[in-house]
Design a protein around this nucleic acid. Structure first.
Lengths: 207, 207
DNA sequence: AAACTAACATACAGCCTTGTTTGTATGTTG
DNA sequence: CAACATACAAACAAGGCTGTATGTTAGTTT
């Protein structure tokens, strides 16, 4: 039963939604394509028409997440007298708020966190790694700029500051997502960021 | 071919070692019992004799990890004039060093991190959660003690300090384990702990 | 030394999955 | 309005995996 292009796109979205639900509940590894198909109200044929295989389906799930405007942030940080800490803290806060309010993002990130990165999903894992590397470079550059402005406390290096920020956010998010979301990530995260950036700026003797 | 008890225990250990290797390389979900058996030089029969199923095997892998002496630490912290920060920092450092030097621990923790916590492995996940909760309680109590001694900077609460410590360590470990161990966790972790505990102690105005 | 049992190996049944292929009805295009 | 391509459904083939049941050998007990 040939459908119009719009209808086809609709079923594609349905499949993605169903995959999100099923993979989140049963785990990527233990959910079959038939499970997804049932949840989407189609047959496996439809899934294999729109997606090459399960790995591709997960990848598209990942791609369906709108990513924060990195170029915009980069431009903000490039400004001559940019307040690096203020920008970074705000971006971090926005990211946490985005995660806190977008349930799709929560589920998809949970799926990716729990999904076995070896084997068929290696590609996804590698892409995340690449993105991570870029982020770290950008972060380190930003902190270096702050250091040049004399704003970074002497006990931090750009690298150590960037690493610490990344570790805290990563720990925070994984704890929240995998641990039943037993605290308010927006609030606690905001406080943690506040404290962290305060220590970046405070004037404590170097190590 | 009936073996003596000692020999049986030996094959049990062989199976555990093989499981560690295979699960680490292929991921728990995609490795079959036959894979493990082959790697151990036995048949699946031997595995099913020693372990109930795959989940049990993973659980025993987890149990094979010697855990740090929590009671000993607790007693140290209970001392009237205990230097809480010094103890906590040392314990954190020791934990990172233990992880850095013990490859079995690295592989097993990697397996657990990447293993799908829903479904058959829910039990393991719950146990980790319980342990986590205990740790958090102990940490919070320790920081509360430090606060009582007037050593905790006013901008921290016992809870926020404990959370931050946990997030940093968790972020640090997952980054290192899942990310190809591309930095020296003992050194960088030591530095991060140093900076973190310095901020706990430093006298910065409250939030 | 006979009876028993621990420690496996081997064989079996059956399910579930994946990927593909075929069929088909319906849009879409010239 | 053909001819073709699209968007699926349905059927198929093949294999892998799990759990168990059974077989077998060698310690162990009495």
């Amino acid at each position: 039963m040939r459908r119009t292009k719009a209808e086809a796109e609709e079923t594609r979205q349905q499949i993605l939604l169903a995959a999100e639900k099923v993979f989140y509940e049963k785990g990527v590894a233990h959910a079959s394509m038939a499970d997804v198909a049932r949840a989407a109200g189609v047959t496996r044929g439809a899934i294999y028409w729109h997606f090459a295989n399960r790995a591709d389906l997960v990848l598209e799930l990942y791609n369906s997440l709108p990513m924060p405007q990195e170029e915009l942030i980069a431009r903000e940080l490039e400004a001559e007298n940019a307040d690096v800490f203020a920008v970074l803290e705000r971006v971090g806060r926005e990211w946490l708020e985005l995660l806190a309010t977008d349930e799709h993002r929560q589920r998809i990130l949970s799926i990716l966190l729990r999904c076995d990165t070896s084997g068929e999903f290696a590609a996804i894992s590698e892409r995340q790694n690449d993105i991570n590397d870029e982020h770290m470079q950008a972060l380190e550059a930003a902190f270096a700029k702050a250091q040049g402005q004399g704003k970074l406390c002497a006990c931090w290096t750009p690298r150590s500051a960037a690493s610490m920020l990344r570790w805290v956010i990563k720990g925070l998010c994984s704890e929240w997502l995998l641990f039943g979301r037993r605290f308010d990530i927006a609030i606690e995260g905001k406080e943690a960021l506040r404290r962290l950036f305060r220590t970046y700026a405070s004037h404590v003797p170097s190590l």
